[in-house]
Design a protein around this nucleic acid. Structure first.
Length: 407
RNA sequence: GGGUAGGUGGCCGAGUGGCUAAAGGCGGCAGACUGUAAAUCUGUUCUCAUACGAGUACGAUGGUUCGAAUCCAUCCCUGUCCA
């Protein structure tokens, strides 16, 4: 299977700038880049699919560069709906440092910052050297701009595509970059860069995008309870990642294996078969969680997540020692609590409910368990006997939300 | 600058003086059923409160009124048309 055939099989190619790119991809030796803006201090699962492409291309003999947009991050890539809130320069700088460190650690690729070349371009040069290559009619024709015309878009965000085109050109001239890949929402920005380079230098460069990863409802994939799943394990524990992937819908799990893992076609087809015959075993889900967590955080973190899940879902934690619990849970997830308090207060201080009123609601609807036993009583007093190994107390809300308290 | 249509709870969207903490849908949370799946059904969903009640809220500020998301004034923002 050639690289392009594999990428297509995995469902990773949506738009491709020209047919000749396929040949070049199969041949190897291209220098390419992929970019992201420092809008937060960590990448999240939503970024993962397109970042993994850089790994696939690298393994096939291409040379990756990761651009973290310290400059573009201060402008804001237009979203389809509304204007972005601006991020302070200090925050962008901070986020940049975090992302750089993270990306180097996980992917091990060279990281560049577009602010390094923007800072020497003044307004007049910008308008003369780059602005002249962009007809406003051309810009208005881009899908993302058109969608914003009825809700409004500021000049700042309107200019974003010029900056990204400029990035492509800079990297083409200074780093030998001939290819840009990204998520499909970036297609307009990529083609803007290809056009700029062709018109200003005559060189032919390429781009391709991958489809947005969604769930079966067509919604963006990669959020748990509405929150992003961060690739920084101090922000999202391996256990949470494990839970997320193990709970993926059956109908999507094979697609996700193709997108998010490096398992071979044969291995994935084998898992597909198992998934069809015995979905309740969730072999495919387990493989998905295993591959991703091991890639991101290592085997040890993965084993820890599995062990924790087994204990929790088999209700085995009563026999655990305090050392086991301290080992299984991340210290950041353990809340300090006091004995001899009312159950309502306990639930609130542990974060399982946001107010006493809500805590009451959960208790009366049978959503709360303590150390594996359902609690309905509103006026239960929490005493020393309820702490495992006289140290920890485990509150469960709903089916799979666990909260750990330490005395 | 002028005309015009708008700005409602996380989102969409009804509501044109009291019965409105504000219909309905989506999303979220919880329960049942399951396989920690999907689908379905049920409850819940501004904040606080042991369900009494209180506080905040319909772009902003002021006003009319016993009473305003609803009327008036000024301002801000968005679309759209004209210049």
């Amino acid at each position: 299977m050639t690289l392009v055939e594999e990428l297509k099989w995995r469902g990773l190619i949506k738009d491709i700038s020209s047919p000749e790119l396929e040949e070049k991809l199969n041949k190897g030796g291209l220098t390419f880049y992929i970019g992201t803006d420092p809008t937060a201090d960590s990448l999240h699962v939503g970024h993962l699919s397109s970042f993994l492409i850089s790994k696939r291309l690298k393994d096939a003999g291409h040379n990756p560069i990761l651009l973290v947009g310290g400059g573009t991050g201060m402008i804001g890539d237009p979203r389809p709906t509304t204007e972005r809130a601006m991020i302070s320069k200090e925050e962008v700088a901070h986020n940049f440092e975090c992302l750089k460190a993270q990306v180097e650690k996980i992917f091990g690729f060279k990281v560049v910052n577009n602010n390094d070349w923007y800072k020497d371009i003044n307004v007049i040069d910008f308008l003369r050297d780059y602005g002249k290559y962009f007809n406003v009619n051309y810009m208005l024709d881009k899908d993302i701009i058109r969608r914003r015309l009825d809700t409004g878009i500021t000049y700042t965000e309107f200019s974003y595509m010029i900056l990204q085109a400029l990035d492509f050109k800079h990297l083409h001239e200074h780093e030998g970059v001939d290819l840009q890949c990204a998520g499909s929402d970036q297609w307009g920005n990529i083609t803007a860069g290809i056009d700029l380079i062709r018109r200003s230098t005559g060189d032919e460069v390429y781009g391709f995008t991958m489809p947005l990863v969604t769930d079966s409802q067509g919604k963006k994939f990669g959020k748990s309870e509405g929150n992003a799943l961060w690739l920084d394990k101090t922000k999202t524990s391996s256990y949470k990642l494990y839970q997320f992937f193990i709970n993926v819908e059956d109908s999507m799990v094979i697609d996700y294996l193709k997108i998010y893992t490096f398992l071979s076609k044969e291995e994935i087809e084998e898992l597909e078969k198992k998934n069809n015959e015995h979905p309740e075993l969730r072999e495919a889900h387990k493989a998905l969680a295993r591959e991703i967590i091991t890639f991101l955080h290592g085997k040890e973190e993965y084993d820890k997540a599995v062990s924790l899940a087994e204990h929790l879902f088999n209700n085995e934690f009563k026999d655990l020692s305090k050392e086991d619990i301290a080992d299984l849970f991340d210290a950041q997830d353990i809340k300090q609590v006091e004995s001899n308090t009312n159950i309502l207060d306990l639930i609130v201080t542990m974060g399982a409910a946001s107010s006493k009123r809500e805590a009451r609601e959960f208790l009366t609807s049978g959503a709360i368990s303590i150390n594996g036993e359902k609690v309905n009583s509103l006026d239960l007093e929490v005493n020393d006997d309820m702490f495992i190994d006289n140290t920890y107390i485990i509150v469960k809300r709903g089916k799979k939300n666990y909260y750990i308290g330490r005395k």
